[in-house]
């Protein structure tokens, strides 16, 4: 069987005909298998949804109880038969509950890795390399200029700035699902034990992380706190809020942004960021290329991001590679900005 007979891109997403399901569909479908809880991958309105317990919980938090007709939870390492294929979930290291999905049919195995990172993250299960014949990889940071470095060093930079400007508030823009909790966990690992403040949009998901046993220390809603009391503190907020009227409640705020995009100075300046923190939940260039090599796949399909460079790299290594035309996915941070902007007052 040819790989494209097992999985193929269609307008609704990645379709598995012999299995009768779609992976991360962008339109409502009968049966959806979902890699992780970010809104561009996990959408409401499907018939049956198969995902990890955490991903299902996050969808419920965001979309309400009726986000799908039926749901089924699956654990990492658990195998299941769907139609003529077998599927198995493996940790993707992207956010809590994120998974790569291995789809096998006869003797061909394709891994749809969703979004992933191979860097350490105290808030989720580490990424696992899954040997396969075809590897479907994201390419959000698919250029060799993206090398994220150690996230702990970036958090040190943030703490040094808090020490240097004790009369100012530090506002850290971070995607509310995953990035925010990772930044908080890293701050705790770096020894910062003061209360950390949360923008209202982050509260529910952050408390959910805590309920799954991830210790985040003392957290406080920022709403209602007096301006003067926010001097010298750190507040986590959705990226779009850090340039919004909302920031006027803070004393002379230092605007930080935790994102892989912050590696490129022009991107940071364009957004008016004063303290860029290169912390990413996606694999960087070295991570992407090392992972591709480690899977042993002879064929690579590249999706959402900088496909050209990664396809070129694969070909120069003698691997069959092609960009996969999938629309509707992107950088979750950009999505969140657009969404939160609507709510601007």
């Amino acid at each position: 069987m040819r790989p494209q007979d097992i999985l193929m891109p269609v307008p609704a997403g990645l379709c598995c005909k012999p299995g009768g399901f779609h992976i991360d569909p962008v339109r409502p479908v009968e049966r959806a298998v979902i890699t992780h809880g970010h809104s561009d991958h996990a959408r409401p309105g499907h018939g049956a949804v198969l995902a990890t317990q955490e991903t299902l919980d996050m969808m419920r938090l965001r979309y309400g109880d009726n986000f799908a007709r039926t749901t089924q939870a699956i654990r990492y390492g658990e195998e299941m038969r769907l139609g003529d294929v077998r599927i198995k979930f493996h940790p993707a290291g992207h956010v809590l509950g994120s998974a790569q999905i291995a789809v096998s049919c006869k003797d061909t195995c394709i891994v749809a890795s969703g979004d992933y990172k191979d860097a350490e993250d105290p808030t989720c299960t580490p990424f696992e390399v899954v040997p396969c014949d075809v590897f479907i990889t994201e390419a959000t940071f698919g250029l060799p200029v993206f090398r994220h470095g150690d996230a702990a060093d970036e958090v040190k930079k943030l703490l040094a700035s808090v020490a240097l400007f004790p009369e100012r508030a530090h506002l850290v823009g971070a995607y509310s699902l995953g990035k925010a909790q990772r930044v908080i966990a890293l701050l705790r690992e770096a020894g910062h034990d003061a209360p950390i403040y949360l923008h209202g949009a982050m509260e529910k998901i952050t408390y959910y992380y805590e309920s799954r046993g991830i210790a985040l220390g003392e957290l406080r809603p920022v709403k209602g706190v007096k301006k003067a009391d926010l001097a010298g503190t750190i507040t986590l907020a959705p990226p779009s809020a850090t340039s919004d009227v909302w920031t006027r409640r803070f004393p002379d705020p230092v605007t930080a942004f935790a994102s892989g995009w912050m590696r490129v100075r022009g991107r940071a300046r364009q957004r008016g960021i004063e303290l860029p923190l290169v912390i990413s939940d996606h694999a960087d260039w070295d991570g992407l290329t090392a992972t591709i090599a480690a899977t042993g796949a002879g064929e690579v399909w590249v999706t959402h991001g900088q496909e050209d460079a990664l396809v070129h790299w694969c070909k120069s290594r003698g691997l069959a590679a092609r960009p996969l035309d999938l629309v509707g996915y992107g950088d979750e941070e950009e999505h969140e900005s657009a969404a939160a902007d609507e709510a601007e007052v």
Binding site: L143, P144, V145, F146, R147, R263, V264, R265, Q306, H312
Partner: peptide, 20 residues
Amino acid sequence: VLFGLSYDYVGDLSETVALM
């Protein structure tokens, strides 16, 4: 080719070289 794509994206020679 990778340098070309990268320089095009970053737009600054020193920065592209530093990153790559």
